[in-house]
Design a protein around this nucleic acid. Structure first.
Lengths: 217, 217
DNA sequence: AAGTGTGAAGTCTTTCACAGCT
DNA sequence: AGCTGTGAAAGACTTCACACTT
């Protein structure tokens, strides 16, 4: 598969299809058409078919897609069987929330370490046998525990230096919740989640009646 | 201004420019070129100029943009002076984190109410003189306190019914953290933040070396 | 000389429309 | 008849390139 040609929005939608199919399989629905699947997600049927067509032919003409087969296929495409070891740096409110959030482990992202540089927080016990540890130990711990993904939940002014610590520990991907753009070497993958920018964008569209419902992109 | 023609990614970048300019103004930098601003954000200078050109001419040729003037102009465009009353529905980990997160109030999004339907949580005192209240009171409280934005942090299976409660209370915009697509009337604006989809997308690009750093879009 | 503002070109993504299977 | 898979068309967004201003 030549993933350079796969639109990023397609990957995000695949993850959404996956979740929807899990529910369908649980509900015992044996098959679904692109039209029905699209309707559930508020997108176009042709979008569903095009997304899937990048990876193969999973449907039966005249019938639709077998839910179990499609679920398996998408799991394969997204590498959903793989488990990823992650760590969270910055145990403020958001870091705490993520450490307590079962949805990540449920998706294969296992939190293996929690870091903060506030001495008052170090040692605090957390779920899953984790303890908040000093950021000064990050490099060793990341390597020992084979952590591949770092989650940055520190304040904006500490985000870049945190990223550099993670890179120095040979992390391969970063999810950055801090409201700054990180400068990273090209081999490190990066996903930004900027909550206040999303609120702002909502506010703008509320004020100016802009184009409306956000698509999955 | 004809906001129907403004690309959504432009709005999100405007919010990012705004934040960057705040720092520049604080640091006493009097002006900046599109090239320098773009470099700080990891995008192209022409993108910065095009984004701004949708709204007017803010720069001086041969010089650049006055930081204070540009900051004011973007504030005006994004309606940053306006204060938005918000409520959070679902006081699990994420709802708690948002209620404690100063970044939102700092951006003009004031949390005016917190709801949950777990009787054990109702009455718990929270920051800013707030108390967790019963979801059954939502409609009245939303109207009394002029709440315009609802933040959904309930589990996936409760998200749609929560959205309907909010709509029934005449909310105008929804930020949805639950991993489901809401079906909403067209006049209600909506922004989705799907954390596990972002992790999945990161994992995919880590596995298949896909096109790399997410742009602001 | 430096840097903006902007049509036009280029690239990426979505949607259409229909041939082809079941 | 119904629905997929997919080239081609449309649309959205970004980048180029250069005229224009300071």
């Amino acid at each position: 598969m030549d993933s350079r040609r796969i639109p990023r929005p397609t990957i995000k939608r695949l993850a959404v299809y996956h979740r929807c199919l899990e529910n369908l399989v649980i509900s015992g629905v044996p098959s679904i058409s692109s039209k029905d699947l699209a309707e559930r997600l508020g997108i176009k049927a042709s979008q569903v078919r095009k997304d899937l067509s990048y990876f193969g032919e999973f449907g039966k003409r005249g019938v639709g897609y077998g839910t179990e087969l499609l679920l398996d296929s998408i799991s394969e495409i997204l590498g959903i069987r793989k488990r990823w070891n992650t760590c969270i740096v910055g145990m403020g409110n958001l870091g705490m929330a993520l450490a307590n959030y079962p949805g990540l482990a449920g998706s294969g992202f296992i939190t293996r370490a929690l870091f903060d540089n506030n001495p008052n927080k170090i040692g605090i016990p957390m779920p899953n046998d984790l303890i908040i540890e000093s950021t000064s130990l990050l490099k060793n711990i990341v390597r020992e525990r084979n952590i591949e993904i770092g989650v940055i939940t520190v304040p904006a002014n500490a985000a870049q230096s945190t990223a550099e610590l993670l890179i120095d520990a040979s992390i391969k991907g970063i999810v950055n919740f801090a409201p700054v753009r990180l400068s990273l070497p090209p081999e490190v993958r990066n996903e930004e989640i900027d909550i206040s920018v999303s609120f702002r964008s909502l506010a703008f569209s509320m004020t100016f009646g802009s184009s409306g419902r956000g698509r999955i992109r």
